[in-house]
Design a protein around this nucleic acid. Sequence first.
RNA 1: GCUCAUGUAGCUCAGAGGUAGAGCGCGUCCUUGGUAAGGACGAGGUCGCGGGUUCAAUUCCCGCCAUGAGCUCCA
Length: 626
Amino acid sequence: MADEKQRKTLDQRHRMSDLERLRHSCAHVMATAIARLWPDAQFAAGPPVEGGYYYDVELAHRISPDDFPVIEDEMKKVVKENQTFERAVVSREEAIEMAQKGRLAALGERDTPSTFKIDLLKDIPEDEEILLYKNGDFWDLCAGPHVGRTGNCKAFKLMSVASAFYKGDASNPQLQRIYGTCFKNKTLLQEHLERLEEAKKRDHRKLGREMGLFHFDEMVGQGLPLWKPKGGIIRRELQEFISGELDKQGYHQVFTPHIGKLDLYRTSGHFPFYEESQYPPFAEREALRKLGDEGCTCGELMNALRTGEVEGFLLKPMNCPHHIRIFDSDHHSYRDLPVRLAEFGTVYRWEQSGELGGLTRTRSFTQDDAHLFCTPEQLGDEIQGCLGLVKTVFGVLGMTEYTVRLSLRDPESDKYVGDPANWDKAEEALREAVRTLGVDYTEEPGEAAFYGPKIDFVVKDVIGREWQLGTVQVDYNLPERFDLSYVGADNRPHRPVMIHRAPFGSLERFCGLLIEHFEGKFPVWLAPEQVRVLPISEKHNQYAEGTVAALAEAGVRVKSDLGGDKIGAKIRLARMDRVPYMLVIGAREEESQNVSVRHRDRDDLGTMTLNDFVGQVCEEIRNRSL
RNA sequence: GCUCAUGUAGCUCAGAGGUAGAGCGCGUCCUUGGUAAGGACGAGGUCGCGGGUUCAAUUCCCGCCAUGAGCUCCA
């Protein structure tokens, strides 16, 4: 697996774009500057990444953003010196000798060897040649390629410093990772920095607070979102939208408790296998009392829960076991299949504290979950149905910026359960379905769940992080573990295949990305407040209230601003609240029984009768127009 | 979970070893104004929580909690 990844990066290096080549070269310029400032620096890897580059360094001095100007000044000198990037092919022995003398990723020989470079050398396959690059006195182990001269790195900036485990392994030491970016010229760099600033304004955490959509409360707990009334409206609208689609596609909605007996999860295999990422189980009161009387320790209690000696309950980390028990509560003939059970199911997972963030990663979240039980023959059609649903959902919301990932098993690994022949069938069924979908997709070997392959829809957030939203997963494992069966045409029992699917994935995460996608400017059907009525003076408050009543009667979410502000201020406020429609009401409107319509983005839409406006807005809501 | 940073009014932030300030928001009053900010006055803070150093801590030190970035993880 590590080799696989290593190989991939190597491949990518040889296929670098011009910009990546420039950024990769800038990483060397930065390393040169750091080596001048701190000669004891030990460098690991320094590749280009989306938006820039980084270089990992081990250094006694803790680099902070305060050091950036100093490093950048030194980098400017290196750029000004306009050193040539020279490529050298050396023997393995020569490379190792240089590394032993501390000569790699350094400006001269040192007392200490270039430890990380020695280790990286070991990872280069025997049949591959060893490449070094040098600029000035700075030699580095590097497959390249690079730009011609350091003078090409004209427009760069150091962005941030963080830490990263060496080779991405949490058991390895942590290095300081310094991020920078580089562009062909200063204008492009400036534009990039402005884009980043703009993007931050769309951050769902910022907008969520400003717009009063959700709240995280220290007293409630980390990663446990509270949906406020306005966010609640968005969530409810999304659920109603999905429910409508489910009805069309022959799903049955079910409701299940938020907890289940540990035995349920022992059978599914999730306990104690995923114990570390679950809220701890709780024992029955009687059992606790008895163990307490016996002077049992917490450790002993946990062990007893693990072995099943003491029965306990778990907050549900997923909905599948409950749905499986619903399926299994009836006898099924092949004529009944597929059975499609759906639920907006809230699940609880003990995510690592450092992983939590806004709505995108939480400890309680609600999946728009469903489990389909079908015959092996039905699998292909059912997958296509699921993918179609995901595509429909994304389409209605205008989310076109997604990538599709087909996650397959790693044929080398033994972590996967089930019959390889079934895996082949499932992978082929998914591949076939995603092709039919007509979108670009990437195949990712080794990314499958342990119980089956899957297709994920992935969307980026404002700072470029990728998040999995919609997912369709094939599962041969759980039907086996729960010994599910249906009666076939041959009157004999057969094992159904299960599909797990969720178009949104998690409502929390989806809403987070949706907020960023719309910049808080939701389409009318989703907007918490759809229309605001703005009387020009208090003389028209009564007519305004009548207008509000008429809209509310028609099912429109409407409010009025009856305060003493001037109309300009009221408009400003409504726009900042991102209300789609504003109705300006004054003497002229009251006289003619009309309303003046203004849109948050399209400005003045002219005057029309209240009835016409109600008709238009209701139509827009009904169609879920964008 | 790890590394680093941050935590001051509802929000955005300034500040200094001697118990606090701005803008916005909020409240009251004046203004009744035609398409992105009318005016006056006022209320609001145990300076995240708990220890320590000090005559004195919101400020310095330690621990915890929370948030952010990155890494690791994600059934």
